[in-house]
Amino acid sequence: KLGPYINMGAVDAQVRLELQKEFDEIQKVQKEIQKSAELQKKLDSQLNQNTVVKDELEFLEPESNVYKLTGPVLVKQDLGEAKGTVSKRIEYISAEIKRQETLVADLEKQLNKHKESVSKIQAKATAVAH
């Protein structure tokens, strides 16, 4: 966790404000990264489950009876349709996972930028204080 390493009392109020701004941004970005990590975990689990179902559907004879539980009703499905629906789900989830991965890479770049800003501001402030 980044903390002030200089005597804040000796520092300009303006600098203090800039640092605070950067710290707030860092916290915000870290929260976003955290959120995405949690979402990815959920998506991974969904991807797993759907893949298991896809594999199971492959084991079935074409005349097999497949049902989908929608609300309280077990509705009969056509095997082909069920396979199609599950495949589409898998595609959608995979795309979402990729999107989150890109998002996190982006956020981490932002995080580093802010961390660099903090270093710069601190360095400048220390130089001035001397």
Partner: peptide, 12 residues
């Protein structure tokens, strides 16, 4: 009738 996951059930 078997629950194979994600709300799909199959008769076997």
């Amino acid at each position: 009738l078997i629950d194979i996951g994600t709300n799909y059930y199959v008769e076997k």
